[in-house]
C-alpha cells in the first residue's frame, strides 16, 4: 500500500514539474508587457527599464525559468504584477473560500445522490425512478453558468430569499469582523462562536453550492442506480436472499459495499470537475475564491498568478486522483496484489 502511494506521489511530482514548465513558457509566449503593467500606464521609459531589471525580465528566458523554479521550491510564487502582493499570500486567502464550496458541494452531492440512486434502483421503472433519471440527466446537461443565473433570478431577484452575490454581507463584515484561524470562513465563525456571521455565510453559500453540486449530484445518483441494478443481479445477492437475510441488510450492507467503490471514485474525480467549475461560478456569484482570482489574472496576463493557480489546480487533481486510486485499492480483491497498481 505504502509503496503504491509513494510511487503515485513521485509520478505526481513529475506531472507538476511538467505542468509548471508548460504554463511558464506558454504564459510568456503570449505577447504582453509585464514590466509596463508593473509600473502602470503612465510610466516613463526609465521606470519600465528599472521594472524589467527588478522583475528579472532583462535576463534570458531560461535563466528566468531556473530562478522561478528555485523560488517555487522555497514556496515563493513571485509577486502579482497587478496587485504587487505575493501570489502565495493571495492564494492563501482565496483557496479556502473555493475549497469550502467544493468540499460542501461534493459532500452534499454524495449524501443526497446516493439515497436517490438507491431508491431509484430498488423502485426501477416507477414514476420516481423516471423522474429521478430525468432530473439527473437534466442537471448534468445544463450549463453551469445558466443554472447559476436561473437560481439567482428565482431565489434572489424574484423571491428575495437569498443574497444575489458575495460571500458575506459587507456591513456585517464591518460590525462583526471574523477572526481568521483556519482561513475557512464557515469553520472560523463556528470556532469563534460568531453565529450571526455563520448564518450569513450559509445564506450566501446556498446558491453557489447548489449550482456547483448539480453536476456531481446527477452523476452520483445515476452511477449509484446503474451499478446497484447490476449488483442486485449478482448471484451473491440472490444467495443472501435465499438464506433469509433481511432486505434492508441485503441492500444497505451487501449490495452497497460493492457499489461504493465505483461511486466514490467517480465522485472524487467529479470534485476535480467541480474545482474547474468554480472558475465560472465564482465569477457569476462574485465569490472571493480562486476562480475569481484566476479570471482576473488571465485578463491581466498576470503570469505569476496564473502559474500559481494552475499549480494549485494540478495539485488538487493529483491528490483527488490519488484518493480515487486509494479507494479502489481498498477493495479486498485488489489490496493483496503485491507490487501492482
Amino acid at each position: 500500500m505504502w509503496k503504491f502511494i509513494i510511487r503515485r506521489v513521485a509520478i505526481g511530482i513529475f506531472i507538476l514539474f511538467v505542468v509548471v514548465s508548460t504554463t511558464f513558457f506558454f504564459s510568456r509566449i503570449v505577447p504582453s508587457e509585464p514590466a509596463q503593467k508593473w509600473v502602470g500606464a503612465h510610466a516613463t521609459e526609465e521606470q519600465i527599464e528599472a521594472a524589467k531589471i527588478e522583475l528579472g525580465l532583462d535576463k534570458p528566458l531560461y535563466s528566468q525559468y531556473i530562478k522561478y523554479l528555485g523560488d517555487l521550491l522555497k514556496g515563493d510564487f513571485g509577486m502579482s504584477i497587478v496587485s504587487h502582493r505575493p501570489v502565495s499570500l493571495e492564494l492563501k486567502n482565496a483557496i479556502p473560500n473555493t475549497l469550502e464550496l467544493v468540499i460542501l458541494s461534493v459532500i452534499l452531492a454524495f449524501a443526497i445522490g446516493l439515497p436517490i440512486g438507491v431508491y431509484s434502483a430498488i423502485h426501477e421503472n416507477t414514476i420516481f425512478d423516471h423522474l429521478g433519471r430525468f432530473i439527473s440527466v437534466g442537471v448534468i446537461s445544463m450549463p453551469t453558468f445558466w443554472v447559476a443565473l436561473m437560481l439567482q433570478i428565482i431565489f434572489s431577484t424574484k423571491l428575495g430569499l437569498l443574497p444575489l452575490t458575495g460571500q458575506m454581507d459587507t456591513i456585517l463584515k464591518l460590525t462583526n469582523p471574523l477572526d481568521k484561524i483556519t482561513g475557512f470562513a464557515m469553520l472560523d465563525s463556528v470556532i469563534t462562536g460568531n453565529w450571526r456571521v455563520f448564518k450569513d455565510l450559509i445564506l450566501h453559500a446556498i446558491l453557489p453550492i447548489l449550482t456547483l453540486m448539480s453536476y456531481s449530484l446527477g452523476l452520483t445518483s445515476r452511477m449509484t442506480r446503474s451499478i446497484l441494478l447490476e449488483v442486485l443481479n449478482e448471484d451473491y445477492i440472490r444467495a443472501s436472499r435465499a438464506y433469509g437475510i433481511k432486505e434492508r441488510i441485503v441492500i444497505w450492507k451487501y449490495a452497497i459495499k460493492n457499489v461504493l467503490g465505483t461511486v466514490t471514485t467517480v465522485l472524487a474525480l467529479s470534485a476535480g470537475y467541480a474545482l474547474v467549475n468554480t472558475f465560472v461560478i465564482e465569477a457569476v456569484f462574485s465569490w472571493p475564491g480562486i476562480g475569481s482570482y484566476i479570471s482576473r489574472s488571465v485578463i491581466n496576463l498576470d503570469y505569476p498568478a496564473i502559474i500559481g493557480v494552475t499549480l494549485f489546480a494540478s495539485v488538487s487533481y493529483i491528490i483527488l486522483n490519488l484518493i480515487a486510486d486509494i479507494i479502489v485499492a481498498l477493495d479486498p480483491r485488489i489490496r493483496f496484489v503485491k507490487g501492482g497498481d
Partner: peptide
C-alpha cells in the same frame, strides 16, 4: 435453503 452452481459468484466478494 439452497446452494448454487457458481460458488465464486455466490459469495459476496467484499
Amino acid at each position: 435453503t439452497m446452494i448454487f452452481q457458481d460458488p465464486m459468484a455466490s459469495l459476496n466478494p467484499v
